[in-house]
Nucleic acid binder design. Structure first.
Lengths: 332, 332
DNA sequence: TATGCCAATGTAAACGCTTACATATTTAGC
DNA sequence: GCTAAATATGTAAGCGTTTACATTGGCATA
């Protein structure tokens, strides 16, 4: 005897009620007599009935899914953000569909299209590279859209934007180095968007104090940091502290510095950005600026779900936190 | 003028054809006259029509979604696996819904239930802790199910299982240490499942050569490795090499060893497991056993999608690879 | 010219649910 | 015990597709 998956009709028949009543029970509505409810629940249990959320979505018009465009789940920070989003979705019975866009505008466009076909209820785009025009064209003005970690966007539709407060983070770190007596502070930069901003703030900080910035261009990877270390030692041996664009860069720098027997922090202080899991376990533990990535994900989800069709586009930002560890030494 | 989202009916009207024809065009079927196709495509473009995948799924019975239960996207390895799964799904126009189960059987059960409501086409469970009984009860026998990184399961339904070949990985690493002249090899263990197996293999390897194993229990975290380092130095200073259960443990060990001025690899050789991104950038770069996590994700997706209702449950495994770097030194 | 056949398209019935509205049943008020 | 209001349940029309089956027309064949 072949059995197809039981539907709401099967349940209704078995319980001797109409599908409407079953539906009401499934959705926990109040207006069902206890007795009836019990019968329905028994039927559900007996049949092993499980509601078809697709059919439900079709009529309610809510898929219960929010799309998330992410550069790469593999990145520790992005993973955290994805997790943060999930944190708020799951308890609500919602789900997220993650798509890695590989920082490719083409792929992003396709991905957004597919997500929209799936009738997602909202869309969170993390650090995207898609053009404003494409975005505007793809997404209707009243669609709940949230841009996470993306530069200011000139969309006239109401969208929400959430970013890390880079300025605050960098200033705090620089202030710390400054207070520890450092005056010759180098920067290993790189990275689009965030990176550019951080560099600007770094330079402004020094210039405001009559100091000369010294920036080494890099690519945000360990290799970049590794190479930067050599350049630093060769070109600016008098530098007493380095502010790295991120922890990965700092890790490469550590590596090369240690190979060349430059001691951290005795000979040179190092400060990173991100606070990746390994940062506090390096030798010495890396002082760095923590990105509240998971929290950002949570905030993002909360914001995008609350978005009312009429609400105006708004900007939000979250503060990073300086994690003081042993890679910075007081001098002078 | 308020416009609702255009449906296939709107397109049909505008193109002067029936919905069936529009549907055929949307699905790229052959039996449509070029001329007609063109009209339909024009109408689609003009209206900005986008198909409702939900409605489609309802009738086709395929949601185009595979559910993925993952302990925590945040873990680097799990992130990679998720990415691997995505690698094969996206080009097929499919999507994955990720749910972190936090290693909690209760949450897993709920999560599976919700995913099934969403009519997922297949389910991949990574390293789950749910009981076989619950699993069997939740999932019908002909449902495409794949267990990734989970111990042997006694389900009589046809499921697929994919695992890392721990034995091979550990043996290769031990063989390497052995060939490099090491005879006093310690192990810092911990972790359920995989960890237990690795320990067994480690011990078997040594015993087979008349050597005495020395295992330090740990918890797989950096802190655990850190503490293990102390114990090791105090209790077994004669050890010349340590095989760590994973890279995180090795990182903690590095840290403490370096704090106590024990040099790697001059005084002690270290070998890890996983090959996390930071491993090759430590000083010295960590020799470790690479888990092909992303590849495993890809394989998993491929396997689960190919699963025919009648195919028998099968076991697959993937080989890890020893990454020889500078944390192991030849002695004797 | 009549007969099939094939290609192209249309018709309409699902898919499994929710929900506005209609109807039946109960309860309360007097 | 009767009426009105409140409560509980049923009816059936969608939601936006796909697809089996029916229909149409054109063309080659006899």
């Amino acid at each position: 005897m072949i059995r197809h998956k039981p539907t709401i009709i099967d349940v209704a028949k078995r319980a001797g009620v109409s599908t409407a009543t079953v539906s009401r029970v499934m959705n926990g509505e109040a207006l069902v007599k206890d007795e009836t409810r019990q019968m329905v629940e028994d039927a559900i249990a007996a049949l092993g009935y499980r509601r078809n959320y697709l059919a439900r979505s079709l009529v309610t018009g809510k898929s219960g899914v929010v799309g998330v465009l992410i550069p790469d789940v593999t990145g520790p920070l992005y993973g955290q953000m994805a997790r943060g989003i999930e944190d708020v979705l799951i308890p609500l019975g919602l789900h997220s569909i993650l798509v890695s866009d590989n920082r490719d505008p083409q792929e992003e466009e396709r991905a957004i299209g597919l997500l929209l076909e799936r009738q997602i209820d909202a869309l969170i785009i993390i650090g995207s590279y898609i053009s404003d025009a494409s975005l505007a064209q793809l997404i209707s003005p009243d669609f709940p859209l949230l841009l996470l970690q993306r530069e200011q966007v000139s969309l006239n539709s109401p969208y929400i934007s959430l970013q890390l407060d880079n300025d605050q983070g960098v200033n705090e770190a620089m202030q710390y180095l400054y207070e520890m007596g450092h005056r010759q502070i180098a920067h290993v930069g790189g990275l689009r968007y965030d990176g550019e901003r951080r560099k600007v703030v770094y330079e402004a900080f020094l210039r405001a104090r009559g100091l000369e910035p010294f920036t080494l261009a890099s690519d945000g990877t360990e290799e970049g940091g590794y190479q930067a270390a050599d350049k630093l030692i060769n070109k600016k041996p008098e530098v007493s502290a380095v502010f790295c664009i991120n922890d990965r860069t700092a890790l490469g720098l550590y590596h090369r510095l240690q190979e060349r027997s430059v001691r951290i922090p005795e000979d040179i202080s190092v400060i990173g950005f991100d606070d990746l899991p390994f940062a506090k376990h390096l030798a010495p533990p890396l002082t760095t600026i923590q990105q509240p990535a998971r929290l950002m994900g949570q905030r993002a989800a909360e914001l995008v779900l609350d978005l009312q069709a009429k609400s105006e586009g708004r900007q939000f930002s979250l503060s990073p936190q300086l994690m003081k560890r042993q890679s910075v030494k007081s001098i002078g």
